[in-house]
């Protein structure tokens, strides 16, 4: 493993920790600031956070499925 790889790994870990902290802060802040949306569902507590997480996993799962069906070798059209 090169130096750069080790550095990238470390950066990834730091970024993940930072994301967790920011994410928690964004959840806590809802206690103090009233949040509302364009549709009724959005007014539920921490709706955007939950929605984003679920949508992300959903998108990735479907993508993996589509890859299984529609992926061909690289020179398919050549």
């Amino acid at each position: 493993m090169s130096n750069l790889d080790q550095k990238l790994k470390k950066m990834g870990r730091l970024a993940s920790i930072a994301l967790v902290i920011i994410g928690m802060a964004l959840l806590v802040i809802e206690v103090f600031v009233h949040r509302h949306g364009e549709i009724a569902m959005e007014d539920l507590p921490v709706f955007p956070a939950v929605f984003a997480f679920v949508a992300s996993v959903f998108i990735v799962v479907i993508s993996i499925g589509i890859r299984a069906i529609l992926s061909r070798r690289e020179d398919y059209y050549d």
């Binding site: 990834g12 970024a15 993940s16 994301l19 967790v20 920011i22 994410g23 964004l26 959840l27 802040i29 809802e30 600031v33 949040r35 949306g37 959005e42 921490v46 709706f47 955007p48 956070a49 939950v50 929605f51 984003a52 997480f53 949508a55 992300s56 996993v57």
Partner: peptide, 15 residues
Amino acid sequence: IGQLQLVVFGMLAFA
């Protein structure tokens, strides 16, 4: 706040 939650939790899911 809504938009930040959307983006940050999307990134968290990725991580």
